[in-house]
Amino acid sequence: MSASPTSFFWYELMTTDMKAAEAFYTAVVGWRPETWGGSGTPSYTVMNAGERGVGGIMDIPDEVRQSGGQPAWLGYIYASDADAATAGVEKAGGAIHRPPTDIPGVGRFSVVADPQGVTFMLLQPDGPDQPPVPAGTPGHVGWHELYTTGWQKAFDFYSSQFGWTKADAMDMGEMGIYQLFAAGDEPIGGMMDKPEQIPVPFWQFYFNVPAIDAATERVKENGGQVLMGPMQVPGGSWIVQCLDPQGAAFALVAPGDASGSKMV
Protein backbone atom coordinates (compact mmCIF):
# COMPACT_ATOMS: atom_id res chain seq x y z
CA MET A 1 0.00 0.00 0.00
CA SER A 2 1.16 3.52 -0.77
CA ALA A 3 2.66 5.37 2.21
CA SER A 4 0.27 8.27 1.50
CA PRO A 5 -2.76 8.33 -0.81
CA THR A 6 -2.00 8.75 -4.50
CA SER A 7 -4.33 9.26 -7.41
CA PHE A 8 -4.69 10.19 -11.06
CA PHE A 9 -2.66 13.21 -12.14
CA TRP A 10 -2.39 12.91 -15.94
CA TYR A 11 -4.88 11.82 -18.60
CA GLU A 12 -4.33 10.54 -22.12
CA LEU A 13 -6.58 10.14 -25.12
CA MET A 14 -5.67 7.44 -27.61
CA THR A 15 -7.59 8.18 -30.78
CA THR A 16 -7.87 7.57 -34.52
CA ASP A 17 -7.62 11.24 -35.58
CA MET A 18 -5.37 13.42 -33.43
CA LYS A 19 -6.04 16.71 -35.21
CA ALA A 20 -9.80 16.27 -35.13
CA ALA A 21 -9.66 15.35 -31.43
CA GLU A 22 -7.48 18.39 -30.66
CA ALA A 23 -9.97 20.69 -32.38
CA PHE A 24 -12.96 19.08 -30.64
CA TYR A 25 -11.63 19.34 -27.08
CA THR A 26 -10.21 22.81 -27.69
CA ALA A 27 -13.70 23.94 -28.67
CA VAL A 28 -15.60 22.01 -25.99
CA VAL A 29 -13.34 22.22 -22.91
CA GLY A 30 -11.27 25.27 -23.81
CA TRP A 31 -7.89 23.58 -23.79
CA ARG A 32 -4.84 24.97 -25.56
CA PRO A 33 -3.00 22.33 -27.64
CA GLU A 34 0.79 22.24 -27.72
CA THR A 35 2.93 19.82 -29.71
CA TRP A 36 5.36 17.82 -27.57
CA GLY A 37 8.48 15.89 -28.56
CA GLY A 38 10.86 16.12 -31.45
CA SER A 39 11.82 14.37 -34.65
CA GLY A 40 11.88 10.63 -34.35
CA THR A 41 9.28 10.51 -31.57
CA PRO A 42 5.59 9.63 -32.04
CA SER A 43 3.26 12.59 -32.44
CA TYR A 44 1.91 13.78 -29.10
CA THR A 45 -0.13 16.85 -28.22
CA VAL A 46 -0.29 18.23 -24.68
CA MET A 47 -3.64 19.83 -23.83
CA ASN A 48 -3.26 22.76 -21.45
CA ALA A 49 -5.70 24.51 -19.14
CA GLY A 50 -4.08 27.92 -18.91
CA GLU A 51 -0.37 27.32 -18.50
CA ARG A 52 -0.71 23.86 -16.98
CA GLY A 53 -0.93 20.58 -18.83
CA VAL A 54 -3.91 18.36 -18.09
CA GLY A 55 -3.36 15.50 -20.49
CA GLY A 56 -2.19 14.37 -23.89
CA ILE A 57 -3.57 13.16 -27.20
CA MET A 58 -1.88 10.49 -29.30
CA ASP A 59 -2.65 8.01 -32.07
CA ILE A 60 -3.72 4.56 -30.98
CA PRO A 61 -0.53 2.44 -31.12
CA ASP A 62 -0.49 -0.22 -33.83
CA GLU A 63 -0.41 -3.08 -31.35
CA VAL A 64 -3.50 -1.68 -29.61
CA ARG A 65 -5.32 -1.26 -32.91
CA GLN A 66 -4.47 -4.81 -33.94
CA SER A 67 -5.89 -6.15 -30.68
CA GLY A 68 -9.17 -4.32 -31.26
CA GLY A 69 -8.48 -1.24 -29.14
CA GLN A 70 -10.89 1.67 -29.63
CA PRO A 71 -10.49 5.40 -28.89
CA ALA A 72 -10.48 5.94 -25.13
CA TRP A 73 -9.31 8.18 -22.30
CA LEU A 74 -6.88 6.56 -19.86
CA GLY A 75 -5.52 7.88 -16.58
CA TYR A 76 -2.07 7.87 -14.99
CA ILE A 77 -1.80 7.27 -11.24
CA TYR A 78 1.21 8.79 -9.49
CA ALA A 79 3.91 6.34 -8.37
CA SER A 80 6.96 7.23 -6.30
CA ASP A 81 8.49 3.93 -7.49
CA ALA A 82 7.01 2.68 -10.76
CA ASP A 83 8.65 -0.73 -10.53
CA ALA A 84 7.40 -1.42 -7.01
CA ALA A 85 3.91 -0.10 -7.81
CA THR A 86 3.69 -2.25 -10.93
CA ALA A 87 4.75 -5.35 -9.02
CA GLY A 88 2.15 -4.51 -6.36
CA VAL A 89 -0.63 -4.36 -8.95
CA GLU A 90 0.28 -7.81 -10.26
CA LYS A 91 0.56 -9.28 -6.77
CA ALA A 92 -2.93 -7.93 -5.94
CA GLY A 93 -4.50 -9.75 -8.89
CA GLY A 94 -4.04 -7.15 -11.63
CA ALA A 95 -2.20 -7.50 -14.91
CA ILE A 96 0.87 -5.89 -16.49
CA HIS A 97 0.31 -4.88 -20.14
CA ARG A 98 3.60 -3.03 -20.46
CA PRO A 99 6.43 -3.30 -17.92
CA PRO A 100 8.07 -0.18 -16.46
CA THR A 101 9.72 1.83 -19.23
CA ASP A 102 11.58 5.14 -19.22
CA ILE A 103 10.35 8.16 -21.18
CA PRO A 104 13.34 10.52 -21.44
CA GLY A 105 12.61 13.82 -19.77
CA VAL A 106 9.24 12.65 -18.46
CA GLY A 107 9.60 9.69 -16.12
CA ARG A 108 9.11 5.96 -15.80
CA PHE A 109 5.72 4.46 -16.64
CA SER A 110 3.89 1.16 -16.98
CA VAL A 111 0.55 0.05 -18.40
CA VAL A 112 -1.45 -2.15 -16.03
CA ALA A 113 -5.00 -3.32 -15.34
CA ASP A 114 -6.98 -3.89 -12.18
CA PRO A 115 -8.41 -7.37 -11.38
CA GLN A 116 -11.61 -6.54 -13.29
CA GLY A 117 -9.58 -5.74 -16.42
CA VAL A 118 -9.73 -1.92 -16.37
CA THR A 119 -6.57 -0.45 -17.89
CA PHE A 120 -4.71 2.45 -16.32
CA MET A 121 -1.13 3.66 -16.17
CA LEU A 122 1.43 4.26 -13.45
CA LEU A 123 3.92 7.10 -13.76
CA GLN A 124 6.96 8.00 -11.69
CA PRO A 125 7.63 11.52 -12.99
CA ASP A 126 11.00 13.21 -13.29
CA GLY A 127 11.35 16.55 -11.59
CA PRO A 128 9.46 18.14 -8.70
CA ASP A 129 5.76 17.58 -8.05
CA GLN A 130 3.37 20.30 -9.14
CA PRO A 131 1.08 21.93 -6.55
CA PRO A 132 -2.53 20.72 -6.44
CA VAL A 133 -5.13 22.54 -8.52
CA PRO A 134 -8.08 24.08 -6.63
CA ALA A 135 -11.27 22.02 -6.93
CA GLY A 136 -13.47 23.05 -9.82
CA THR A 137 -10.71 24.74 -11.84
CA PRO A 138 -11.98 24.90 -15.45
CA GLY A 139 -10.29 22.48 -17.83
CA HIS A 140 -9.05 20.12 -15.14
CA VAL A 141 -10.55 16.79 -14.10
CA GLY A 142 -13.21 17.24 -11.44
CA TRP A 143 -14.37 13.64 -10.94
CA HIS A 144 -13.23 10.06 -11.58
CA GLU A 145 -15.86 7.35 -12.09
CA LEU A 146 -15.26 3.62 -12.27
CA TYR A 147 -17.84 1.37 -13.91
CA THR A 148 -16.85 -2.15 -12.97
CA THR A 149 -17.95 -5.68 -12.11
CA GLY A 150 -18.06 -5.97 -8.33
CA TRP A 151 -17.24 -2.51 -7.03
CA GLN A 152 -16.44 -3.83 -3.52
CA LYS A 153 -13.55 -5.92 -4.85
CA ALA A 154 -12.45 -3.02 -7.03
CA PHE A 155 -12.42 -0.67 -4.05
CA ASP A 156 -10.38 -3.16 -2.02
CA PHE A 157 -7.82 -3.30 -4.83
CA TYR A 158 -7.41 0.46 -5.23
CA SER A 159 -7.46 0.99 -1.48
CA SER A 160 -4.69 -1.55 -0.96
CA GLN A 161 -2.52 -0.13 -3.74
CA PHE A 162 -3.09 3.62 -3.51
CA GLY A 163 -4.49 4.33 -0.05
CA TRP A 164 -7.99 5.32 -1.18
CA THR A 165 -10.68 5.46 1.49
CA LYS A 166 -14.47 5.23 1.41
CA ALA A 167 -16.56 8.38 1.61
CA ASP A 168 -20.36 8.49 1.37
CA ALA A 169 -22.31 5.74 -0.37
CA MET A 170 -25.54 6.34 -2.28
CA ASP A 171 -28.24 3.72 -2.82
CA MET A 172 -29.44 4.11 -6.41
CA GLY A 173 -32.13 1.44 -6.20
CA GLU A 174 -32.02 -1.00 -9.11
CA MET A 175 -28.68 0.46 -10.18
CA GLY A 176 -27.09 -0.54 -6.87
CA ILE A 177 -24.66 1.33 -4.66
CA TYR A 178 -22.60 4.30 -5.81
CA GLN A 179 -19.54 4.38 -3.55
CA LEU A 180 -17.60 7.62 -3.27
CA PHE A 181 -13.88 7.38 -2.56
CA ALA A 182 -11.21 9.80 -1.40
CA ALA A 183 -7.45 10.04 -1.84
CA GLY A 184 -6.89 12.35 1.11
CA ASP A 185 -9.49 14.60 2.72
CA GLU A 186 -12.06 15.12 -0.04
CA PRO A 187 -13.88 12.65 -2.35
CA ILE A 188 -12.42 12.59 -5.85
CA GLY A 189 -14.69 10.03 -7.49
CA GLY A 190 -17.12 7.16 -7.27
CA MET A 191 -17.43 3.55 -8.33
CA MET A 192 -20.37 1.31 -9.10
CA ASP A 193 -21.31 -1.92 -10.84
CA LYS A 194 -21.69 -1.14 -14.52
CA PRO A 195 -25.13 -1.24 -16.17
CA GLU A 196 -25.71 -3.98 -18.73
CA GLN A 197 -25.63 -1.50 -21.61
CA ILE A 198 -21.99 -0.67 -20.85
CA PRO A 199 -20.05 -3.50 -22.54
CA VAL A 200 -16.82 -3.46 -20.52
CA PRO A 201 -15.58 -1.92 -17.25
CA PHE A 202 -13.77 1.40 -17.63
CA TRP A 203 -12.73 4.65 -15.95
CA GLN A 204 -14.65 7.76 -16.99
CA PHE A 205 -13.22 11.23 -16.40
CA TYR A 206 -15.23 14.42 -15.89
CA PHE A 207 -13.71 17.68 -17.18
CA ASN A 208 -14.64 20.89 -15.38
CA VAL A 209 -16.56 23.51 -17.37
CA PRO A 210 -18.11 26.77 -16.13
CA ALA A 211 -21.65 26.10 -17.41
CA ILE A 212 -23.25 22.81 -18.46
CA ASP A 213 -25.80 24.04 -21.02
CA ALA A 214 -23.25 25.95 -23.09
CA ALA A 215 -20.76 23.07 -22.91
CA THR A 216 -23.42 20.55 -23.98
CA GLU A 217 -24.22 22.68 -27.03
CA ARG A 218 -20.52 22.83 -27.90
CA VAL A 219 -20.37 19.02 -27.81
CA LYS A 220 -23.24 18.79 -30.30
CA GLU A 221 -22.02 21.62 -32.52
CA ASN A 222 -18.59 20.02 -32.87
CA GLY A 223 -19.73 16.53 -33.81
CA GLY A 224 -19.91 14.84 -30.40
CA GLN A 225 -22.78 12.80 -29.04
CA VAL A 226 -24.63 13.32 -25.75
CA LEU A 227 -25.38 9.99 -24.05
CA MET A 228 -26.97 11.21 -20.82
CA GLY A 229 -27.93 14.56 -19.34
CA PRO A 230 -27.48 17.30 -18.57
CA MET A 231 -28.63 16.25 -15.11
CA GLN A 232 -28.07 17.47 -11.57
CA VAL A 233 -26.36 15.16 -9.09
CA PRO A 234 -26.27 15.14 -5.28
CA GLY A 235 -24.27 18.13 -4.10
CA GLY A 236 -25.70 20.40 -6.77
CA SER A 237 -23.27 19.93 -9.68
CA TRP A 238 -24.51 19.36 -13.22
CA ILE A 239 -23.10 16.62 -15.44
CA VAL A 240 -23.38 15.39 -18.99
CA GLN A 241 -21.91 12.16 -20.40
CA CYS A 242 -20.75 12.13 -24.00
CA LEU A 243 -18.82 10.52 -26.85
CA ASP A 244 -16.34 12.53 -28.89
CA PRO A 245 -16.46 12.30 -32.71
CA GLN A 246 -13.99 9.39 -32.74
CA GLY A 247 -16.02 7.43 -30.16
CA ALA A 248 -14.11 8.02 -26.91
CA ALA A 249 -16.28 8.38 -23.80
CA PHE A 250 -15.88 11.44 -21.59
CA ALA A 251 -18.01 13.59 -19.30
CA LEU A 252 -18.33 17.21 -18.24
CA VAL A 253 -19.16 18.67 -14.82
CA ALA A 254 -20.22 22.20 -13.92
CA PRO A 255 -21.26 23.88 -10.66
CA GLY A 256 -24.91 24.56 -9.88
CA ASP A 257 -26.48 27.33 -7.82
CA ALA A 258 -28.50 26.80 -4.65
CA SER A 259 -31.80 26.66 -6.51
CA GLY A 260 -30.64 23.87 -8.76
CA SER A 261 -30.92 25.83 -12.02
CA LYS A 262 -28.16 25.54 -14.56
CA MET A 263 -25.53 28.22 -14.64
CA VAL A 264 -25.31 30.43 -17.74
Rank of each mutant, 00 (worst) to 15 (best):
D168P: 02
W10N: 10
M58C: 09
P5G: 07
M14G: 15
I57G: 11
G139L: 05
N208R: 15
L227R: 13
D156Y: 10
E51R: 15
L74I: 11
I198M: 09
E186M: 04
G37M: 01
Y76R: 11
I212P: 07
V226F: 13
E174M: 03
T86W: 09
T149S: 06
Q246L: 07
T86N: 15
E22P: 09
E186L: 02
P131M: 02
P134R: 08
F250Q: 01
A27V: 03
N222G: 10
C242W: 00
V133F: 06
Y44N: 11
E90H: 11
Y11D: 05
I96G: 14
P131W: 01
A183V: 00
G142A: 07
G173Y: 02
S237Y: 13
G260I: 01
I57V: 10
M172D: 00
A87P: 02
A72I: 12
L74Q: 08
A215S: 13
T148F: 05
A251M: 11
I198A: 00
Q204D: 00
W31L: 10
P255S: 10
T101D: 02
L227Q: 09
P128W: 08
Y158F: 12
P201R: 07
G236C: 03
G176H: 03
L243F: 08
I177M: 09
H144E: 03
G256V: 03
A27Y: 04
D114G: 08
P199F: 06
S160P: 05
Q66L: 06
P100A: 10
E12V: 14
P33N: 13
D168I: 04
Y206N: 01
M191Q: 09
A167S: 05
E12H: 14
S160T: 14
S261D: 04
G53R: 14
I198N: 00
G69F: 12
R98K: 15
V112M: 02
D129C: 07
D185H: 07
T165Y: 11
E145T: 01
E22D: 11
S39T: 13
G56H: 01
E90C: 02
Y147F: 12
Y25W: 07
G69A: 13
A258G: 07
S4A: 13
H144K: 07
T148N: 05
V112L: 05
A169W: 04
F207L: 10
A248G: 12
V233H: 09
L180T: 06
W10C: 08
D129H: 12
T119L: 12
L74N: 15
F109M: 11
M18P: 11
I177E: 08
L243Y: 14
T149I: 03
E221I: 09
R52W: 03
A251V: 04
D168L: 12
C242H: 01
V200D: 02
D83P: 14
F181D: 00
A20E: 00
I96R: 15
W143T: 00
D129V: 05
F205K: 10
V219F: 06
G173M: 02
N208A: 10
W73L: 10
S2A: 14
T16F: 09
K19T: 11
P61N: 10
N222Q: 13
G88R: 14
G55F: 10
V133R: 12
D244Y: 13
G163Q: 03
G50P: 06
P33E: 09
E186A: 03
W143M: 00
Y44K: 09
V219D: 03
Y147D: 08
W151R: 14
F162Q: 05
S80T: 11
A82P: 10
V64N: 06
R98H: 15
A3M: 05
I239W: 12
G176C: 12
